[in-house]
Design a binder for these strands. Sequence first.
DNA 1: CTGAATTTTCAGTAATTACTGAAAATTGAT
DNA 2: ATCAATTTTCAGTAATTACTGAAAATTCAG
Lengths: 190, 190
Amino acid sequence: MALTPLTRQFVSHFGEMGSRWGINRTVGQLYALIFVSDRPLNADELAEMLEFSRSNVSMGLKELQSWRLVRLKHIPGDRREYFEAPEDVWQIFKTLAEERRRREIEPTLSMLRGALLEEPADATDKHAQKRMREMHDLIEMTTSWFDDVQRLDPDTLVQFMRMGAKVQKLLELKDRMKLVGGKSNGQQRT
Amino acid sequence: MALTPLTRQFVSHFGEMGSRWGINRTVGQLYALIFVSDRPLNADELAEMLEFSRSNVSMGLKELQSWRLVRLKHIPGDRREYFEAPEDVWQIFKTLAEERRRREIEPTLSMLRGALLEEPADATDKHAQKRMREMHDLIEMTTSWFDDVQRLDPDTLVQFMRMGAKVQKLLELKDRMKLVGGKSNGQQRT
DNA sequence: CTGAATTTTCAGTAATTACTGAAAATTGAT
DNA sequence: ATCAATTTTCAGTAATTACTGAAAATTCAG
């Protein structure tokens, strides 16, 4: 089954973008195709549609599974393995964030923590540690904050994001409430 | 001038991580070294410290400049070009985000917008467009939200991030205020 | 302007990564 | 248990990307 021009466009864009990330062209295209497909696809179908060798598809799927971006689905009466992408795009985004965190952020944080425990040899080392601490703190703050946001229920999150620039005003509001009296519940008066 | 073990550790971690991003090992190491250095460095120093060829350093610096991650600094009485990383790590983070946006997000959004304008050829195309729209909307929402956050002044931002999970409660508060009366100013009573 | 210092370019090569086909391993229906 | 269907592995090769040294270009002090 051949790709429609619409899908071909999407798939090849992901192929190109794939190489900008750590992920390669094949993996990017596989994912794109699975993502837009209206039904689970098996390895042979993917190989045929994308004109990759069967073994290349096998390796690509393994990679996508390790990222938890596709999941296996069995179709009754068919022995082959079918693959699909999760329905919920926000869920996909969160999975991607989690995996990048595990693979990139955590190792970096632990390297930084290690480096910060070492005894600086000289003034240069002292300065290097200062910079590393700044980096460490920034990464830690943004990731732990992202963790919190991730846990919000989707409706709250959407509402929250839509607020955009109003955040600043909201914080001013909160501060005023705090001034007003201990645990703010929005009911106090001045 | 040789690298201390502390810096060597940091530099080689960035080399390895670099290859996971689109950026290569050389560029990662160059950046790491410039980032922790307590003074601007010139190309010859970088080449010597990292044991890269002079031309490799030249290409790497060009790449880093295109990402706006290092900037040129001239030292009086010295013709050579020195490079340094911005002081403020939050600024660095924002620059990185802006560049990734320009290079990755914007092209993807415009591909998606193009695809969404096309006439679906069949039911498969219809479904593909539905998925593309979901992706488009998610990307647009998160990036435009990030834009807003980026514009917050640093203090508000830190305060905001520290709140973490309390966001949900804050939004509840906001809703209650809204219920109370049109433009909330935190002063109304029930 | 001249020319030494410095940076950039680029063709050639090295190193790495991606991909294939064939063979091995696994799976599950009978 | 058998064996055909299916998936995975892996050695070899192709393609891509990274790196170098030499040469060209640029810069700027005199």
